[in-house]
């Protein structure tokens, strides 16, 4: 009996260990993706070398980096009115467009023989955020070590991180859907348009919902007034 239990324990711990190793490998795989995006993004989903858990991690790290940047960058390089910053609001204002754009891209590309599932698009986009984390996080430290006259270093690194992310996102979409560069470009514009449509639908939905709820609430009130 004890032997059985021991066996089960070691089995489950083995599974966990394996999972952890896979997770660590998929995290590490990001370093390969950002330098060899064409090969990297292809294998990311098709060879299952990336994982959803790692993607979530990168998104979370991205948001954390953003917040840390707002709060701890030296005042010479950022003018963030700390007294007004609402961290949750700022994060939501990044996260929401990110998800809406992923959704819009999936809903459009799925109609035009894109090979990627929503899960794949999301993963590719999250992996594309890695340069932002890798560059901006040390940049917070660097901002305390240089003066405003040397700000060129800061701004160059800043733009490098953003351009790198942009290129990765582009290549990521290309590989995930197995599109050519031209088609990807068209679909990026289409995605932005799609996101606007989604926003419009959300607005309409909520305004109708509140109207409908308001109707029932006032109906209930009217009846309760009559009865009382």
């Amino acid at each position: 009996m004890t032997a059985e239990k021991l066996g089960a324990d070691s089995l489950s711990s083995g599974i966990w260990k394996e999972r952890l190793q896979r997770y660590a490998a998929s995290l590490k795989y990001a370093l390969h993706v950002i330098v060899r995006p064409f090969d990297g993004f292809w294998d990311l989903t098709r060879e299952k070398r990336g994982s959803l858990a790692a993607a979530h991690t990168f998104l979370a790290l991205f948001l954390i980096t953003y917040v840390l940047k707002l709060l701890y960058t030296n005042f010479q390089f950022i003018s963030a009115p700390v007294q007004y910053i609402n961290i949750y609001e700022r994060c939501a204002s990044l996260l929401f467009p990110f998800l809406v754009l992923c959704l819009a891209n999936w809903s459009l590309s799925t109609l035009f023989d894109g090979k990627g599932h929503f899960r794949d698009i999301y993963m590719a986009m999250c992996y594309a955020l890695v340069p932002y984390i890798l560059i901006q996080l040390p940049l917070i430290l660097i901002s305390h070590m240089i003066s405003v006259d040397e700000g060129a270093y800061y701004s160059v690194l800043m733009s490098v991180s953003l351009i790198w992310c942009g290129l990765l996102a582009f290549v990521g979409l290309m590989q995930v859907h197995d599109y050519g560069p031209g088609k990807t470009l068209i679909f990026i514009f289409a995605t932005i348009f799609g996101a606007l449509v989604i926003l419009f639908l959300i607005l309409v939905f909520f305004s109708l919902l509140s109207d409908a709820l308001g109707y029932f609430v006032s109906l209930y009130r009217e009846i309760s007034f009559r009865l009382s």
Binding site: F75, Q76, S79, S147, V148, D149
Partner: peptide, 12 residues
């Protein structure tokens, strides 16, 4: 005073 230029000079 949020004075970046002077802060930068002093910092150097």
């Amino acid at each position: 005073a949020h004075d970046r230029q002077n802060y930068g000079r002093a910092y150097r």
